[in-house]
């Protein structure tokens, strides 16, 4: 009886236990790990992944996937940086349209949301598998980024913009505040709103949801648009932290976010998962990345270890599901 109880608790808190074990191991091997500055460093680093992963969770809950988030992040960051530093010049009428910080950020966020919504529209309107539609968008957005930036970084974006990625507010890094707000909003959406219930319902059984009157296409477009908007927020944070928009920013970020979602216990077939689980997944990946760097593990081995952890998480989750 007791064994069964322990097993139930183990399954419930397995991600937390995994995080504890990883922290324990790294802190035993490196004295730099358990320090306040390194803690904030890890939190700052995972903020971008948390934002993207929250959007990815909403999509995965509807049994979809978005491979374009990394490219969308780069494009939105580049557009924001480009507008902020160069504005728009219209030669024939000798007009220069300059963008304030607010204006450039709003345009960047709008672009991300629009591209995400477009992904959702293509998926629902033409019945294209999300994997294929977003894979195409991955290439399109990366190409547009390279075209817009002409392959060069856009830098010199000013102190005010840099504050988003490097500033502190009430003793906490600004990116951590931003990702915390995103998490709180997403938790409210998934747990307290009709949209949240629809998202779980669609992922659980799409046919039944359609028969019960849910406008599946509309919900999916909204979910993909939210994910695009969150990728844009990630793009703003990355661009701000580096004080430059890099054309190759966000490469393979989609994999990190999918990993965070999976480690957080969400099912890729939809209907199962939580935002807080994903946050925990993102923290595990962030701590792992940080620990491997502190332990001077080669970047090549870091990728191998990360892949193995993801594989292990899925295997454990599958075996737990069977035993349930």
């Amino acid at each position: 009886m007791n064994l069964k109880l322990y097993k139930t608790y183990f399954i419930k808190f397995q991600s937390l236990i995994a995080l504890f074990v990883i922290c324990l191991l790294i802190s035993l091997l490196s004295d730099k790990f358990l320090t306040v500055s390194n803690g904030w460093n890890v939190m700052r680093q995972i903020s971008v992944n948390v934002c993207i992963s929250v959007g990815m969770t909403l999509i995965v809950l509807t049994a979809g996937i978005d491979l374009s988030v990394g490219s969308v992040l780069a494009l939105c960051g580049a557009i924001t940086a480009g507008l902020l530093s160069d504005g728009i010049g219209i030669m024939p009428v000798d007009l220069y349209i300059g963008f304030t910080l607010l204006g450039a950020i709003l345009v960047g966020l709008f672009c991300g949301t629009f591209i995400g919504g477009f992904n959702g529209w293509v998926i629902t309107r033409f019945n294209v598998p999300p994997f294929v539609a977003t894979l195409a968008m991955l290439t399109i957005a990366r190409g547009l980024t390279l075209l817009y930036t002409e392959g060069h970084p856009i830098s010199g974006l000013g102190e005010n913009f840099a504050y988003i990625g490097t500033g502190w507010l009430l003793g906490v890094p600004v990116p951590v505040w931003i990702s915390a707000l995103v998490v709180v909003a997403a938790v409210i959406i998934t747990n307290k709103t009709r949209l949240g219930r629809y998202i779980y319902a669609i992922g659980g059984n799409e046919s039944a949801s359609r028969l019960s009157g849910i406008n599946i296409g509309r919900v999916k477009i909204i979910v993909y648009a939210i994910a695009g908007g969150l990728a844009a927020i990630g793009g703003l944070m990355v661009t701000s932290r580096l004080d430059s928009a890099q054309p190759n920013a966000g490469v393979s970020y989609e994999l990190d976010s999918i990993a965070a979602v999976v480690i957080g216990g969400a099912s890729l077939s939809g209907g199962k998962g939580t935002i807080l689980g994903t946050v925990l997944g993102a923290i595990i990946i962030g701590v792992l990345n940080n620990g491997l760097v502190l332990l001077n593990v080669s970047p090549f081995w870091q990728q191998v270890v990360k892949g193995m952890v993801i594989l292990l998480a899925v295997i454990i989750d599958k075996s737990n599901a069977k035993s349930r």
Partner: peptide, 16 residues
């Protein structure tokens, strides 16, 4: 209100 605080206009030749 947002538009007013988002963009501003100048002569392109002056900026260049």
């Amino acid at each position: 209100f947002i538009s007013y605080h988002s963009v501003y206009f100048e002569k392109l030749s002056d900026v260049r």
